[in-house]
């Protein structure tokens, strides 16, 4: 827990982010948090609150979080059960209907191959969410383990890891994708996820390293060390819980960007390949037909934009709640 009051800061940021509704929410927060302990740390009425319950308390009242959360919940549900809202088969196409517009049973019309755009857009969410979530998990786990260990132990391994992350930071993502993924012939999502993890972990690892270094200098860690606690105990019990917040924040925001990256790579023909259903593939296929069938381009593009926006806004809200100093 930070040992200085940060109430006013929070209220200001709330105004900036969410407008009037948010201001009202922040005021409620401020009022509720009025009682303070002798050390200046905020205290809710009654029992003490951890960083996490404090953040959750904050998030619940953030309309940005609620809105983006609902969109993401919806995306996750249709990713798991697309047939809930789309009864067709995204791979079944009738060329006779190519480029036709909206009609009964096919609200988004048909693309250049006569496939139902609505069905394909719904099924496209699955790959996007799967790639985004898997890549983020991979990056977060790999990055925080490597970065955390390097930050905790320091020395040669830390220096080595820092140089390695420098090397990875220097690789342009799209160029790297064109080079590495163009040799892959498989059309599963794993090569794409693997590529994102490969190029994404250094970012998390730097953040994890930094926050572990900060956390390990805290008095209670020193105290644990003086009492003879083992390295693993110190890491798991005292450092990790206090260092993980920035990782979660960055990972949440990165999730949206991984979805956009998947679409970019698929658009360029090196990401997912047909018969996988992906928004990037559909955008690429529909772009030459923009003059005659703009709907085939606009729906998947719109879905992609909305999804990325939702994840980035969610990340912003989580960041505000978890790490007010970053504002």
């Amino acid at each position: 827990m930070p040992d200085e009051p940060y109430e006013p800061e929070r209220a200001i940021a709330g105004t900036g982010m969410g407008g009037q509704m948010d201001l009202a929410a922040s005021e409620a927060v401020t009022l509720e948090k009025m009682p303070r302990g002798p050390d200046g740390t905020e205290r809710p009425a009654g029992r003490p609150r951890s960083l996490w319950s404090d953040a959750w308390h904050d998030l619940r009242r953030n309309p940005v979080f609620i809105l983006s959360g609902l969109v993401i919940l919806f995306l996750v549900v249709i990713s798991l059960w697309p047939s809930l809202i789309a009864s067709g088969n995204p791979l079944q196409c009738d060329l006779a209907k190519a480029q036709e517009g909206s009609q009964a049973g096919h609200p988004f019309g048909f693309n250049g191959q006569g496939c139902d755009v609505y069905t394909r857009t719904v099924y496209g969410a699955r790959t996007s969410v799967a790639v985004g979530v898997c890549a983020t998990l991979g990056v977060a786990v790999l990055g925080s383990v490597l970065g955390g260990l390097a930050g905790f132990f320091g020395g040669v391994w830390d220096a080595l890891l820092s140089r390695v992350t420098d090397v990875f930071f220097a690789i342009p993502v799209v160029l790297g994708g064109l080079v590495l993924l163009s040799v892959v012939t498989s059309n599963s999502i794993w090569p794409v996820i693997g590529f994102m993890v490969l190029l994404g972990w250094p970012q998390i690892s730097r953040i994890a390293r930094g926050s572990v270094i900060t956390a390990k200098q805290n008095d209670y860690v020193q105290a644990a060390r003086a009492l003879g606690a083992s390295n693993s105990r110190m890491l798991l019990r005292h450092i990790a819980p206090n260092a993980v917040a920035p990782v979660i924040v960055v990972a949440t925001i990165a999730l949206g960007t991984y979805i956009a990256l998947e679409a970019t790579l698929s658009y360029l023909g090196v990401g997912l390949k047909p018969p996988s259903v992906s928004w990037g593939i559909d955008i690429s296929a529909a772009s030459p037909y923009i003059r005659n069938a703009p709907h085939a381009l606009l729906w998947p593009s719109g879905a992609l934009a909305l999804t990325v926006l939702a994840f980035i806004m969610l990340g912003d809200a989580v960041r505000d709640a978890l790490d007010p100093k970053l504002r």
Binding site: P172, V173, V174, Q203, R206, I207, V249, V250, I253, A254, G256, T257, A260, L261, A263, T264, Y267, L268, S287, V308, I312, G315, D316, R319, L326
Partner: peptide, 23 residues
């Protein structure tokens, strides 16, 4: 603000990639 910076950067890369193949 590393997170936000990263987000913008990938978005730009996306736009650049789309633009590059289109023209």
């Amino acid at each position: 603000m590393r997170g936000a910076t990263h987000a913008k950067w990938v978005a730009c890369a996306t736009a650049a990639a789309l633009a590059a193949t289109a023209c």
